[in-house]
């Protein structure tokens, strides 16, 4: 069974702009997929539909058996607990330490402190930040902040990791490291990864499935693809 499925999915914004038109797409468990396209091509819309930040206007989006479009606002958290999301701007809580940031989702789900500690330490170890638990986000470099964001995304062992331009704010060397961290998570934990990106080098180096979005339409879907204009 497919893990993610878009069926004739269209998203038209209130101002009349079409984000995505008639998208049909299937992604299996454990895949690593790049979503590429120009700015305003619709790749962010596609990503936002996955974690129900946007609702499809027509058609449906299913993630792990949940029909995302039919999910009520106050039940969205149930979907998001099954996902990990990595953002371009990290979205860390500035007044919490690294440890507290990574522990935050589990605390808010009501986990016991004794359950939280090993999970947080394991996630921080996975991203190579075990020695920075007491730092605050502003004391870290961009790359380190992104690692904290990844640790927070994987701390609950999600089935799907959604990455929205995770290297957009990072230099090439740090970007490479971040992608390696995410790739390791995909390989070791068999987490499905969907990543929207601009970064040609990364896409070309990884040789993974590439979905090209152009003007809201799925233009190409290539296994072991490259970033070509």
């Amino acid at each position: 069974m497919e893990f993610i499925e878009f069926k004739d999915c269209t998203k038209i914004y209130k101002n009349g702009v079409t984000g995505i038109a008639n998208a049909n797409l299937k992604i299996s468990k454990g895949e690593f997929v790049f979503i590429i396209g120009h700015t305003a091509s619709g790749k962010s819309t596609l990503i936002k539909l996955l974690y129900r930040e946007e609702k499809p206007t027509r058609g449906s989006v299913c993630v792990g058996g949940i029909d995302v479009g039919k999910l009520r606002n106050n039940k969205v958290y149930k979907l998001r607990r099954k996902l990990g999301i990595v953002f371009q701007d990290f979205k860390l809580l500035p007044k919490l330490t690294v440890y507290e940031n990574v522990a935050y989702p589990l605390e808010s789900y009501g986990y016991k402190s004794s359950e939280i500690r090993p999970l947080v330490l394991r996630a921080l170890e996975q991203v190579g930040l075990k020695d920075k638990t007491r730092s605050f986000p502003h004391q870290l470099s961009g790359g380190e902040q992104q690692r904290v964001c990844i640790a927070r995304a994987i701390v609950n062992k999600p089935k799907l990791l959604i990455c929205d331009e995770p290297t957009g704010n990072l230099d090439p060397e740090t970007s490479k490291e971040i992608i390696d961290v995410i790739n390791n998570i995909n390989q070791e934990l068999k987490t499905t990864v969907v990543m929207a990106t601009h970064d040609k080098e990364i896409v070309n180096r990884m040789k993974k499935r590439v979905i090209v979005i152009k003007d809201g339409l799925i233009d190409k879907d290539i296994q072991k693809g490259c970033y070509k204009e």
């Binding site: 974690y51 930040e53 606002n73 106050n74 969205v76 958290y77 149930k78 979907l79 998001r80 607990r81 996902l83 999301i85 953002f87 979205k91 860390l92 809580l93 935050y104 989702p105 808010s108 789900y109 009501g110 927070r152 609950n156």
Partner: peptide, 16 residues
């Protein structure tokens, strides 16, 4: 922003 992050990591509205 804080509230948005809470929402994004799957915190229920009640807990927020």
């Amino acid at each position: 922003n804080e509230i948005e992050i809470m929402r994004l990591v799957g915190t229920s509205n009640f807990v927020i």
